[in-house]
Design a protein around this nucleic acid. Structure first.
Lengths: 153, 153
DNA sequence: GCCTCCCACCGAACTTCGTTCGGAAACGAG
DNA sequence: CTCGTTTCCGAACGAAGTTCGGTGGGAGGC
C-alpha cells in the first residue's frame, strides 16, 4: 500500500470505468504495470468491487429515512436474525448495529411517505424483538465519494 | 426506463467493470445496442457514476460511528454552512439533514476511538451552532449493494 | 565493494473490446 | 396500409486489455 496504490485507489473511487491506459497515463506508469497493481489491490481485498451509482429517483424512491430501533434481548442470535431479516427487505439501503441508546440504525429508501409508514407498520413492527423504534425522514444528503487513507495513528 | 434498462442498472450496480460485450451477452442483445442503452442512462442521469468500493481497513479507518447533532438556529444559512463544513472533513463519509429530534446525522470513519474522540472534541464541538451531539459507534454493518426499482405507488 | 537474487517495471505482440455507421426491423400515428 | 420514427443489429476499424520475455535497481550475503 504505497503512494502509487493510494493514488490508484483514489482514481478508481472517483471513476471506476476509466480505461487502464488512462489510469496508467495519469500515474505516469506503463499500462501493464498499472494493470498488475489493480489486480494486486483486488487480490488483497483492498478493492472490494466496482459499483454504478444510481439516481434514487429513477428507482422510484422519493423518500429516504433513518429508523433507529431498539431490540431485546441483545443476544447474538436475535441480532443476527434481525440483521438478516432487515438486509433482505428491498426498501433497506443499509443497516448498522450500533452502541448507545439505539441498537440498530436502518437506512431505508421508499416511494413516498405512505410507503414509509406502511413499511414501519406492516414490516418492522411485526418483529417481536423490537421494543421501540423512531424514524427520521432525510431532507438532504451529502456523500463523500472519494475517501483518502488517514495518517497513521 | 423499461425492463432492459432495469436489468442493465442492476448488472452495473453489481459489477461496474464488466465489459460491454459481457453485459450484452447477459441481456441477449447486441453490444452496440447495449452501449447505446448505457450511454442513454448516463445522459439521462440515471447512472450518476461508477465507483470502486474500498476496504475501510485499507484506508486506515478501523472505527466508524454515527454522530447525531442538533444545531440552532435552523435557518438555511446555518444549515448550508454546517453542511459544507462537515462535507469537507476527511473523516466524514456522509452527512444527512434529518427531521425528528436530531438535525444532522453524520457518518464518520476514523483510525480508532482516540481519533473519534479527538474528532468530536477538536473539530465538531468548535462549531458554535451546535447545541448538542451524541455519537454511536458502529459494531456491524450490512450494505445492500444492488437496489431494485420499487413498484409504482 | 562486489556478486547474486528478487521484485517491480517496461514494451512489444496478440487478443479482445469499444465505437461507429449503414441498413433492417419493429412500432405507432394517421 | 403507409409513412415516419425509433430501436436494434452486424460488420469494420481503431483502441484497449492482457501476456510474457527481458531489463534495471535495490537488498542481502560474502
Amino acid at each position: 500500500m504505497d503512494e502509487l496504490d493510494s493514488a490508484l485507489v483514489q482514481l478508481l473511487q472517483r471513476d471506476a470505468r476509466q480505461t487502464n491506459r488512462e489510469l496508467a497515463r495519469q500515474l505516469g506508469i506503463a499500462p501493464s504495470t498499472c494493470l498488475e497493481r489493480v489486480r494486486s489491490l483486488e487480490r488483497r481485498g483492498v478493492i472490494r468491487g466496482y459499483h454504478a451509482e444510481i439516481d434514487t429517483a429513477a428507482l422510484n424512491r422519493g423518500v429516504q429515512a433513518f429508523v433507529a430501533v431498539q431490540i431485546r434481548p441483545l443476544s447474538r442470535t436475535v441480532i443476527d436474525s434481525f440483521t438478516e431479516f432487515v438486509a433482505g427487505l428491498p426498501q433497506v439501503v443499509s443497516a448498522f448495529v450500533v452502541a448507545g441508546g439505539d441498537d440498530f440504525l436502518i437506512h431505508v429508501a421508499v416511494q413516498d411517505l405512505d410507503h414509509l409508514h406502511a413499511f414501519l407498520v406492516d414490516r418492522l413492527s411485526r418483529r417481536r424483538e423490537i421494543i421501540s423504534y423512531r424514524s427520521s425522514v432525510i431532507y438532504q444528503q451529502a456523500h463523500n465519494t472519494v475517501l483518502a487513507a488517514l495518517d497513521e495513528p
